[in-house]
Write a protein that binds this DNA or RNA. Structure first.
Lengths: 175, 175
DNA sequence: GGACATTGTTGACGGGGACAACAAATTTCG
DNA sequence: CGAAATTTGTTGTCCCCGTCAACAATGTCC
């Protein structure tokens, strides 16, 4: 507990403006329920990473909320989409395509397989690989997920403006 | 272990194109070391969230790598910057400004305080609040961090193109 | 055939978001 | 005033995720 031990009052933090109790006419303290005095973000304003992070969190929150009914996370959605569009893909290929670790993917597939959404078939050519596919149940769930994800994206496009949405998508894809 | 039990060969996965073994002239299998057959991303191509996530991860990786010397994470950097620019801020205000949980911030400040970078002074007006400040050591480390973070951002701007960088920043700020 | 690489897997560590519960302090209001 | 509600900092717990190391099975290269 490195925090100050909750000393009762003995503060020494003086205000910047020297003590003038009654001289200031308008609200010496922000008059009860004033909107917080606007926090300064300083250097953060120049850093893309900060805003990209904020937007990513915000977008994911909406996505998760909308797909909570069918219990599909953003990561799971991307896995289902890519498997469906590339049946027979190996786990290494899928992981590298989505930019996630092989080890991570193993556990994701574990859960998806428990839900009977995906299967790992033996690859005929290479004994090491697994040919990934969606089950019929997986395809059905993915169809539902795509509907909800599209609603999510439409809301995002509306909230952002169609042209800004398009610009963002274009720039991010070049990265 | 829901994975297929590593059965030796018995695959039943027929190719979409009906069996024509010798009729196809060019590489039946991707000719040894062919560059992977280009994975299809399908619906993902329309979803901002996917690309925003990819960029966020990429940016953070570079940031972490560059600031590894002084052991400052992106989250820690944002905390240091905002405290320095708003001395006396409370933990609640800081947490809500940065969009992180109060509980999370407590543990971050715990670590920063162990490193003698931040202090929690008692607030003179409100016995519940802590007035956050950087120590001199904290200010010095922040100065170094800002230099490295600026290098990171410059590299990012160069990599992206100045105008695209500016466009991104502008759009993300509106969000 | 033997060295090396790839693939899937497991284990372990730490960062981080999400909640729930709490004590202390403050505000609200009857 | 004083009881109820709210705010603030704190701790605990759970789970997801990224990272790394190690390993067995399999395949490739020479």
């Amino acid at each position: 507990m490195p925090a100050v031990k909750r000393a009762p009052k003995g503060a020494k933090k003086a205000d910047t403006q020297t003590d003038k109790r009654k001289s200031v006419p308008l609200r010496e303290k922000p008059a009860r329920k004033a909107s917080a005095p606007a926090i300064e973000f300083d250097a953060l304003n120049e850093h893309l990473g900060y805003f990209v992070r904020r937007m990513q969190v915000s977008i994911f929150q909406d996505f998760i909320r909308r797909l909570a009914r069918i219990d599909v996370s953003p990561a799971q959605f991307s896995v289902l989409v890519v498997i469906s569009a590339n049946p027979g893909l190996s786990q290494s290929e899928l992981a590298s395509a989505l930019g996630i670790e092989r080890a991570r993917l193993v556990r994701m597939l574990h859960r998806l397989e428990l839900r009977n959404l995906t299967v790992r078939l033996p690859s005929s050519a290479d004994g090491r690989r697994h040919a990934l596919e969606l089950t019929r149940e997986g395809e059905k769930l993915l169809a539902k997920a795509k509907v909800l994800a599209d609603e999510h994206e439409s809301c995002l496009r509306e909230q952002l403006g169609a042209e800004r949405h398009q610009t963002l998508l274009a720039i991010l894809k070049t990265f």
